[in-house]
Design a protein around this nucleic acid. Structure first.
Ligand SMILES: [Mn+2]
Ligand SMILES: [Mn+2]
Ligand SMILES: [Mn+2]
Ligand SMILES: [Mn+2]
Lengths: 219, 219
DNA sequence: ATATATTTTTAGACAAAACTAAAAATTTGT
DNA sequence: ACAAATTTTTAGTTTTGTCTAAAAATATAT
């Protein structure tokens, strides 16, 4: 598989999770910053190789083989992200770009050894689950901070938007994965929240809250 | 720079070390397992980018920029080889193939952090020197085992042929970098050697001896 | 010195992956 | 239901990097 094919497969996988079963040509083009005509060309090649199901004008979905391929790439991407943070002291806003390159390195032994070196991590630096060798992974039980009721208590376990700008914003405001969070007040007017995070009180906008995942303590 | 351009630059660098100043089109083609016509095409592109000096039919050589580029790639290649051996328990015959891929990853921060993680190694698993950030490196003082006189004593510091087959042969016969070597006898007839290696006596053929570098103890 | 052999370059083709512009199919609005 | 808007596909180019076959330059051998 070429690098480009792998990137398409990964994008189709991500778009297939959210939203509808069949992924639209335009959606792929937009996410990959390419043109719809290029997407159509590539989809045909992928269809030829039995990685996607494709009927023209009907959108595209991954075959079983395509799905397995996608999970393999995502496993590599996320393991490399952990490596960069844990072993090379990268910050969580710097890892994605490099992982985009590293995810295409082909060597089973390499990725298995990396997994062992990192002590088989289950989640990447953004709180996203890492598929195991066989592509299996459990989506962690979590909710957007913007969706939980007042007085909820939990721990911050992930980000929805993992852009560098958002992550740096969180750093600046001392918000990190693992922090204890209590929702003190939800402002009707603009949806902003008063929270207590690791003992410290602060106010965050609705936009911020809708990009933070927490695991609620259910007693 | 594209991956392919980088591979050409690296090959021209290696061929330029040994042998003559100007590198022949055919030599590049042979080493890269490609056709001479493809080489000519690429050389023109590299010349356009000021990475090589080229006058048709006169062979090719690296410019200052090309040289610096080559050293950067070789630095990455060798650091990754050290990483694979030291951190991921690869054997020295397994690292080259993966390093061929990893050497093309683009991130200064990545390679500097890797260098730090590995404690700034000076040599790769095959005894080849690792250029520093600025492309500087000192070729270690060493000689082929086949060229030193009888009774020489020294330490094994590198291999000339670093193919997996040769390296596995060395493993099988318990020969490794760092071993103490004494040349007991040189057989006139076939150039084979009787050596004592880490206290153990053995006989090795001329071919083997001419692919092992030793640093002779000069007293 | 001249014919022969070797090396290198050119010319023309091809595949991958992208693009633009235009056509075709589908969806939406009234 | 039908026109308009949107989405998707096709057709035709482009760039990178490769190839084969043929031509040109250089090296070698008698
Ligand atoms: Mn990422
Ligand atoms: Mn991630
Ligand atoms: Mn190597
Ligand atoms: Mn090496």
């Amino acid at each position: 598989m070429t690098r480009s094919e792998e990137n398409y497969i990964k994008t189709i996988f991500h778009l297939g999770r959210k939203g509808t079963r069949e992924v639209a040509t335009n959606a792929i083009a937009e996410l990959m910053e390419t043109k719809p005509s290029s997407v159509t060309d590539m989809i045909k090649r992928l269809s030829e190789k039995d990685l996607v199901n494709y009927k023209r004008y009907q959108g595209v979905s991954l075959t079983a083989l395509g799905n397995k391929t996608a999970l393999g790439i995502i496993r590599k991407h996320r393991l490399w992200e952990v490596f960069l943070v844990e072993k090379l002291d990268f910050s969580w806003d710097e890892v994605h770009e490099v992982a985009e390159q590293l995810e295409h390195i082909k060597s089973d032994k390499l990725i298995d050894s990396l997994d062992r070196l990192l002590a088989y991590p289950k989640f990447d630096p953004h709180g996203d689950p890492i598929p195991d060798k066989n592509g299996g992974f459990k989506e962690r039980d979590r909710e957007l901070l913007s969706e939980v009721p007042k007085n909820s208590v939990g721990v911050c376990v992930g980000v929805k938007d993992s852009s560098a700008t958002f992550l740096k914003f969180l750093d600046k405001n001392g918000i990190a994965l693992g922090n204890q969070i209590r929702v003190m007040e939800i402002e009707e007017f603009d949806g902003s929240l008063n929270i207590e995070i690791d003992g410290r009180k602060m106010q965050i906008s609705h936009v911020i809250a809708s990009n933070l995942y927490i695991k609620v303590n259910n007693d």
